[in-house]
Design a protein around this nucleic acid. Structure first.
Lengths: 230, 230
DNA sequence: CCATGTGAATACTTTCACAGCC
DNA sequence: GGCTGTGAAAGTATTCACATGG
């Protein structure tokens, strides 16, 4: 019987890290970078967990999926752990992304300062609007949508960002997939269908606020219903 | 013993919806709105689930936390279900938000078209930079940070958005809390500490891309390691 | 009949608590 | 002594599969 599951392989190597852990590793990385900049050489799980906003046990469990990079009774070497996580996350190389849609959000993303230090490089901007094509945004010339295939192939881009209105999202996703993109970050307020093997993550600005509004409503109205058991 | 837990109360009423469900209700709402606009009056869980990008069982389980709003053998009345979810999410009223930080991202957010139809209204813009104060962005005059308390109180704002650089995030969070804000959406690449009772959600653009890069790396390198059991 | 609503089963995540090692 | 690494326990979330009722 042949399986290709994830958590921990027969040879003992730490393959297949749980999704929840993968989502937190970049947070740890950021915290470690901050510590390194402050000149801190070593830290305990408590301190790092505090910086990252998680509880220490969770941090240690997360790190344990990568290997044993700490020292018992001491803690973690900041620089060493930083490197190990960066390597696991594929951050030893830079990742080029193409942003489709150069409206307010697309422009803001292309100007975003936070990417470069996280191994992300905005390599190309694309828009379907002829009015925007040829314009320079954050030092990058906007290309027409029909050149997506060429751009992706030439620059070996594997990650695409959808920053269009919701109505265009599926069409853009199809174009990205056709161009050979296998990972998509979707900011458009729409669910896109993609073939097997293509990853999609969704960031929905309205939804985040709606979730907060829900909790806000519960705070103010019911002011936490109390129940007395037995 | 007094508890104030969430999932299902002693009286049987459906209070305390699981977090994962709350996060999906806005997606269902959007799908229902789209169906309603297309003139669809009724739909089965299969169709709605497809629109929302989830599996039908999950959809039905999610809806079951709100009550029994479907009809066996038939499906759901689009308009009725839409209203029930909207009510549960607190979307019968509009929620005013204040955005702190009117850089690229803050400007993009204030111009975002998707909010108004989701019960979200950008009611105020605030920035600490005197250069930006007084400027008009998306029809709203930018106020100085020290007026936050007045603005929040006057307009009864309960949700704040942090769209500043990471270095300012904690300071802004403190100011929001001091002003009486109890729900924060944090776009800054930093973890902010807030007192008990204040909700924080975090959207981190770099992290989303880093997660995609991780999966991308795994696709191209190992191309799914196989293990043969027994 | 047919699709909902839901217990029960499974899978995943978090937390606890302590053995193991420096 | 102190902090990591980790089994085991507890808590959530997802999926299955079918009884239920329009």
């Amino acid at each position: 019987m042949t399986i290709l599951r994830s958590p921990r392989l027969a040879d003992g190597s730490a393959r297949g890290i749980p999704d929840a852990t993968v989502a937190r590793l970049p947070v740890y990385l950021r915290a470690l970078n901050a510590l390194a900049e402050s000149g801190v050489l070593s830290c305990a799980s408590n301190e790092l967990a505090e910086q990252a906003g998680v509880n220490p046990a969770k941090l240690r469990k997360d790190l344990s999926y990568l290997g044993s990079y700490g020292t018992r009774g001491v803690g973690y070497d900041v620089e060493y752990l930083r490197y190990q996580i960066a390597r696991e996350m594929g951050q030893t190389q830079d990742w080029d992304v193409v942003i489709v849609g150069v409206g307010n959000l697309g422009s803001a993303l292309s100007a975003y300062q936070g990417f470069s230090t996280r191994g992300i490089r905005v390599a190309a901007l694309v828009d379907s609007d002829p009015q925007r094509v040829g314009a320079e945004v954050s030092g990058i010339v906007v290309s027409p949508l029909d050149q997506l295939g060429t751009i992706v192939a030439d620059r070996k881009i594997s990650i695409g960002v959808i920053a269009t209105p919701g109505t265009a999202a599926q069409e853009v996703a199809d174009a990205l997939v056709a161009a050979g993109i296998t990972s998509i970050l979707n900011f458009a307020p729409a669910i896109v269908q993609v073939p097997e093997g293509v990853d999609v993550r969704k960031v929905d600005l309205s939804i985040e606020l709606q979730i907060l509004a829900y909790h806000e409503q519960r705070k103010t109205s019911t002011t936490s219903k109390e129940v007395t058991t037995a």
